[in-house]
């Protein structure tokens, strides 16, 4: 029996091959392109267009130029929601990352139970947000776990979800708990990818663990931190479900985050044009914040 070698690609000229490859590539990319077009580009273009119109789900959108954006400037509801969103974003992102880092550093080291602990810490992140919100509504109930725990240290029970000073922080606690696991896993992966030689050199030079953390670990981890920070900020600014399910934006507007206000404006008040304008402002704010984060944190390289 003899083997005859067949060339893997038919003999074609350089130009013809490029065409064939381009056509195949185009065909392979087509499903993704269609998906992108239908579910991203078209809604996005429609939202941009609607933001310059008055549209209440009836008739055709009426072009109003910048009216929706001008309206926003004098809308106390919008500014209240913007303040709430800012507080919620800072309140949930900072502890998530600080705690995430504090947990990731020991978990990234070789250890007998670390793999198991990493799996454990990921459980909340794997839970659906709606289910998480339901669980926390029970935890924050008058006779729930939260009040039982603070009762152990002699603190009076708190109306977590109906006190306008506490409700937002109750949501922050829940969100931090929910996202912490994901951040821990990402940061752990980043930490494990750092070059050991640098740490060995630092140890030989007699650097202590705190100095090593601030002078070596954090700078080297900058790219991973940037990624975590961007997804944490964007996630917090888009947060809708916890406020919708746990507090409905109350009490007295204390948890009315911008996505919730946007939803109420669009689907409660039927002002799709104005809701689209709010969405655009939110998008621009998120882009701007992301760019700032990139500018501040870029430059370093993990590993």
């Amino acid at each position: 029996m003899s083997l005859r070698l067949v060339p893997p690609v038919a003999q074609v000229s350089g130009k013809g091959q490029r065409w064939a490859e381009a056509r195949t590539g185009g065909l392979l990319a087509l499903p993704a392109a269609v998906y992108f077009l239908v579910f991203w580009l078209v809604p996005f273009v429609a939202a941009v267009y609607l933001s310059f119109t008055s549209y209440d789900f009836a008739g055709t959108p009426e072009w109003t130029g910048l009216d929706n954006y001008r309206r926003m400037l004098g809308d106390p509801g919008f500014w209240n929601s913007a303040r709430v969103t800012a507080a919620y974003t800072i309140g949930s992102v900072v502890p998530s990352i600080v705690l995430g880092l504090a947990i990731a550093v020991p978990l990234s080291k070789p250890g007998r139970y670390n793999a198991f602990l990493r799996g454990l810490v990921m459980i909340p992140a794997a839970m659906p947000l709606v289910a998480t919100s339901m669980v926390w509504s029970v935890i924050f109930a008058d006779k729930g776990l939260a009040n039982a725990l603070i009762g152990l240290v002699g603190v009076e029970p708190k109306p977590w979800l109906t006190d306008e000073g506490l409700a937002l922080w109750a949501l922050v606690i829940m969100t931090t708990w929910k996202h912490l696991g994901l951040f821990v896993i990402i940061l752990t992966a980043g930490l494990q990818g750092l070059p050991l030689s640098v740490f060995e050199a630092a140890a030989l030079d007699g650097a202590g663990p705190i100095r090593v953390f601030y002078r070596i670990t954090l700078p080297l981890l900058r790219r991973t931190l940037l990624f975590v920070l961007v997804i944490a900020v964007v996630g917090a600014m888009q947060s809708f479900v916890p406020a919708f399910l746990l507090t409905k934006g109350g009490p007295a507007g204390a948890t009315e985050v911008l996505p919730l206000y946007l939803w109420a404006t669009g689907f409660g008040f039927e002002r799709m044009g104005y809701a689209s304008a709010i969405a655009m402002v939110l998008l621009v704010a998120m882009l701007a914040l992301s760019l700032v984060q990139f500018r501040v944190l870029r430059g370093g390289e993990d590993g």
């Binding site: 077009l37 239908v38 580009l41 078209v42 273009v45 429609a46 789900f57 009836a58 008739g59 055709t60």
Partner: peptide, 18 residues
């Protein structure tokens, strides 16, 4: 063409909705 298609699809979607 892509932009034109997007605009047409948007417009037809809006018209269908209205």
């Amino acid at each position: 063409n892509l932009l034109k298609t997007a605009a047409l699809t948007t417009a037809s979607g809006l018209l269908a909705a209205c």
